[in-house]
Amino acid sequence: MATPDGNPASSARRQRRMVAAVLFGVAGGMVGLAFASVPLYRLFCQITGYGGTPRVAVGGGYALATGPQREITVRFDSNINPALPWRFEPGQSSIKVRLGDSALAVFRVENLGKVALAGSATFNVTPNKAAPYFVKTQCFCFDEQHLAAGQVADLPVSFYVDPEIANDPNTRDVSTITLSYTFFPAVGGKAPPAAKRPASSTADGRQRTGDPATKG
């Protein structure tokens, strides 16, 4: 245990401090990991479609259907957070789409409030296991939506279902997919007291394009 300076006590102390420093580092690293888990978890959900996070096609293209032409029913569901005085309904309750074909669905949204408001929609897909094969090419949920008082708008979403869904043994049995949206008041910082806040102040210019899914 003796060191070059010949003092075993100080050497032992130094060794103890080194071990403690390493352990402090480990504890600090775990705090860092806890925070890093937020983006990592997002990334993980987006890549794997975990918890019903649908895929987003980068180029806007769609896969060409190959193999047997199967049809799949896509149902639409809309929800609204009570803090947002909007009406929000799918324009169609369901559509049938061939695997690989691009499809367009429309949601109608109306601002029932007396002031302009901004909202943003979160989304997910049920059954969760179908999510990796559900690909959106364009979606109103990628951006904040601004509606003047009383304004009505038709919001489009275009998507296709990857034909690989028919080859995956886990998803081969899926014949119906439900796409669900929930509109929340757009948040630029703090959850706004509903119907009080003018749209201009809520939009902080932050684009939600490709913003992570919320569920999963």
Binding site: G32, F35, G189, A191, T214
Partner: peptide
């Protein structure tokens, strides 16, 4: 770490666990 996120969610307007802000 998680408690800190909860504390800032409650008091400083972050959205780690608030779906409206992209949290979960």
């Amino acid at each position: 770490g998680a408690l800190t996120m909860l504390l800032t969610d409650r008091n400083f307007g972050t959205h780690f666990f608030v779906p409206a802000g992209g949290g979960d």
